[in-house]
Amino acid sequence: MRENPTGAELLAIAREVLRKELLPLLPKDKQYDALMIANAMGIAERQLQTGDAPARAEAAELAALLRQQGDLASLNQRLAQGIRAGAFDHDLTAQDLLWRITVQRVRESAPRALDAYTGK
């Protein structure tokens, strides 16, 4: 049993101290560095929060689409090869999966960018 707060919670509060208390005190030429650190902490925090469930679901959906087994990396490889060969040009199921997989990655790496795509 690990201690609480969790890693994600620690990153969240540490990020708040960085942004609200330290950032205003930094000289102008160092503020960009602090923003980059906050950004990196945010990505790590969201990855921890999300856990492995989406990756497992992604692997299961890819396996069903491609009708083969394998780890996520090799299934992705097969999907990429199929796309290049034109096998999914008109496959709406594949395209829908591609969209959802990508949204999930944006949610972790740059969630604010998703605002422009809501309602899709």
Binding site: M36, Q95, D96, S109, A110
Partner: peptide
């Protein structure tokens, strides 16, 4: 750190590419 974060720009570029090329959530 800057190079590391640049890698994390890729997903949003991909999402915009999917939108531009007509892929949408069903």
């Amino acid at each position: 750190l800057e190079l590391a974060l640049t890698a994390h720009i890729v997903p949003e570029l991909e999402l915009e590419l999917l939108r531009m090329t007509g892929v949408q959530h069903a």
